[in-house]
Simulated assay, not measured.
Amino acid sequence: MPIDRAKTARGAIAGAVAAVVWAAQQPLDKRVFDVDYDDCELLGAAVTDGAAVTPVGWALHTLNGAAFGAAYAVAAPRLPLPSWARGPAVALVESTAVWPGTAFIPSLHPRGSRFPKLWGSRNAFLQATWRHLLFGVVLGELERRLNAPDVEEVPPSYEHVVSTNGHGSIEHAMVTITPVANGAADDDDEDDE
């Protein structure tokens, strides 16, 4: 099945928007979950240091969201889930699959020592789950709306039951009434016996 480039691009837009929503709410969820962890900072600090960490991190996070959204737009129609559940389900599966990688942040990340310990922290896992759930809801709903089929509502045709005089078709009425009339006649014959 060929990939629809326009649909994939709209999925990328939905993913980028969802990633920005995720990043923008991080200050709030840091307070709620009491974990001072920022995904944008993690990404930015992997490639730069100093004042550039924040803008580079936001850019990388948005690009990651766009890539995820593009892949999601291709895969979502094939998922055996209701449309409202696809985004959250895919995001939570991805979150759960990559979570064990947090154990390696302190040793593999160039600036891993500046981040809180995530692996083994219940609150950090809940924070990551919340972030992915939010991302999935925004991605799924936005992608569904952006990639909605361009189908104009066509009113159903009633020509087969309506005649040109506006009173209906006698053939349709007879087909509908006849089985009922025959059934009623059969019941009357049984009563006579």
Rank of each mutant, 00 (worst) to 15 (best):
R131F: 05
N182V: 12
L63W: 06
A128D: 14
P116S: 00
L60C: 08
F125L: 15
I177F: 15
I170N: 09
A70H: 03
P77D: 07
A70Q: 03
A45C: 09
D191S: 12
A103V: 02
A12Y: 07
P77M: 07
A75V: 11
A89S: 13
T178S: 12
S121G: 03
R144I: 04
H132F: 09
K7I: 02
A73C: 08
W84D: 10
T54F: 07
V32C: 09
V17C: 06
L63C: 08
N147G: 14
R86E: 00
G120K: 05
A14I: 02
Q25D: 04
S157G: 08
E190Y: 05
L60R: 00
L43F: 07
Q26I: 13
T62F: 00
A45L: 05
K30C: 10
A45N: 04
F125N: 13
P2S: 12
V53Q: 02
A24Y: 09
Q25Y: 12
I3K: 04
D49R: 14
V138C: 01
E143G: 02
V175K: 14
E152T: 12
V21C: 05
V32M: 10
L43S: 00
A9H: 10
A128E: 14
V175Y: 11
G140L: 01
V151Y: 03
G11Q: 02
D49N: 15
I177D: 13
D49A: 15
M1L: 09
E41N: 05
P155V: 11
D38Y: 08
V74N: 06
G120C: 06
V90F: 05
L139S: 01
D186A: 14
L42A: 04
V138G: 00
R111S: 09
F125K: 15
P100Q: 01
G11C: 01
T176W: 13
Y37S: 00
R78D: 07
V90K: 02
W130Y: 14
L63R: 03
V20A: 04
N64P: 01
E153R: 12
T176N: 08
T8E: 11
E141Y: 10
L63K: 04
L43T: 01
T178E: 15
L43Y: 02
K117T: 15
N147M: 08
Q127R: 14
N64Y: 04
A70E: 04
E143Q: 08
E94V: 12
R131E: 13
A16F: 03
R86T: 02
L134F: 07
G120M: 06
F125D: 06
K7V: 06
V162Q: 06
A173D: 15
G136F: 00
P149E: 09
A124P: 08
W130Q: 14
W58T: 00
W119G: 00
H132V: 06
H132L: 04
Y72N: 10
V93K: 12
V98A: 15
G11D: 01
V90Y: 01
K30V: 10
D150Q: 09
A45P: 06
V32N: 10
E41M: 04
E190P: 01
T178V: 11
R122H: 11
F135P: 02
G57C: 09
H109M: 10
S113N: 10
G112R: 01
I105H: 03
L79V: 04
M174P: 03
L81N: 13
L134S: 13
F135M: 02
T178M: 15
G168P: 03
L126W: 11
V32L: 15
R144A: 10
A89C: 06
S107K: 15
D189H: 08
S95G: 15
A148E: 14
T176G: 05
